[in-house]
Simulated scan of single mutants.
Amino acid sequence: MRNRSVVALLLTGLLAIALLAFGGTGILESLAGSPTPATSSSAAPVPEAPVPGPAEVRTPAAVPGPDAAPANPSGLPSISESALPAEARRTLALIRAGGPYSYSQDDKTFGNFERLLPRQSSGYYREYTVPTPGESDRGARRIVAGAGGEKYYTQDHYDSFTFIAEGS
Results as ranks from 00 to 15, higher is better:
Gly134Leu: 07
Ala140Val: 04
Asn112Trp: 13
Gly134Ser: 06
Val144Glu: 10
Ile95Asp: 09
Ala97Arg: 11
Asp107Ser: 15
Ile95Tyr: 11
Gln120His: 15
Glu135His: 03
Gly134Gln: 06
Gly134Ile: 08
Lys151Ser: 10
Leu116Cys: 01
Pro133Ser: 13
Thr154Asp: 08
Gly98Gln: 01
Asn112Gly: 13
Ser160Val: 05
Asp106Gly: 10
Gln120Thr: 10
Gly146Ser: 08
Arg90Trp: 02
Gln105Leu: 09
Lys108Phe: 09
Ser160Ala: 14
Asn112Tyr: 13
Gly99Trp: 08
Gln105Pro: 00
Gly99Phe: 07
Ser121Thr: 11
Tyr101Asp: 05
Gly123Gln: 09
Pro100Tyr: 15
Thr132Gly: 00
Pro133Val: 02
Pro131Arg: 07
Gly149Arg: 05
Tyr103Gln: 12
Arg119Trp: 05
Tyr103Val: 09
Tyr153Ile: 12
Ile143Thr: 03
Arg90Gln: 12
Arg96Phe: 02
Val130Arg: 00
Ala147Gly: 13
Ala145Met: 03
Glu166Phe: 02
Lys151Tyr: 07
Ser136Ala: 14
Lys108His: 13
Thr91Gly: 06
Glu150Gln: 14
Gly148Cys: 06
Arg141His: 10
Asp137Thr: 15
Thr162Ser: 07
Thr129Lys: 03
Leu94Val: 05
Val144Ala: 06
Arg115Gly: 00
Leu117Asn: 08
Glu87Leu: 02
Arg138Pro: 03
Gly99Met: 09
Leu116Val: 06
Arg89Gly: 00
Gln105Lys: 04
